[in-house]
Design a protein around this nucleic acid. Sequence first.
DNA 1: GACCAGGCACATC
DNA 2: GATGTGCATGGT
Length: 213
Amino acid sequence: MRRKVILLYQKLHRAFGPQHWWPAESSFEVIVGAILTQSTSWKNGEKAIGNLKKHKVLTAKKLYRLKSRKLATYIRPAGYYNIKTKRLKAFLKFFFEKYRGNLKRLSQKPLLILRQELLAVNGIGPESADSILLYALGKPAFVVDAYTKRIFSRHRLIKESVSYDETQDFFRQNLKNEVKLFNEYHALLVKLGKDYCLKRIPRCAECPLKNQK
DNA sequence: GACCAGGCACATC
DNA sequence: GATGTGCATGGT
């Protein structure tokens, strides 16, 4: 199994090359992006981020002080904008009350403790927490998303019904515990998922993983 | 118009 | 623990 998981990674890496993730200009932007792109196309999340940049409020302090009503209008293109406003505000409250809005302080906490703390913030679930840990803070947390499950269950490497934690364990058991690898693997899976492993009509015939068992 | 997109919380059984 | 539902915009 371990060999298969690594082989699949190598195949993706050959096909697509390094993905240079997360596509953002700062760690803080990664955190905001993690919340804004929840169950939304990346493009819509990007538009919302673009609005925050346009209005020059994409910093922790400015977002913390920004009125919720205004924030909601800025992030509207991301969808679920009222919920996401609450979620961003909940993270910022946590971030300032516990870490003085300082990313360095945040990243000094050990992975598992910090993961627990992030999960306790309303609106941050396992995928957002792991995205923040991996892509904003450089910690070895493997990110599981809809694409990951779809791709691996279609290749019969995991069951379709497995939980988030079980899927993450699967990768922990079959991969070296390396930030670089976790980063690149998840990014490649998203690339594959977007382009080939579509929900309804998968493009398996053209997929770089065809014949992969 | 239907379906989908890089989730999550909450209610209910 | 599993299953269902609300949240919303924008692209195909």
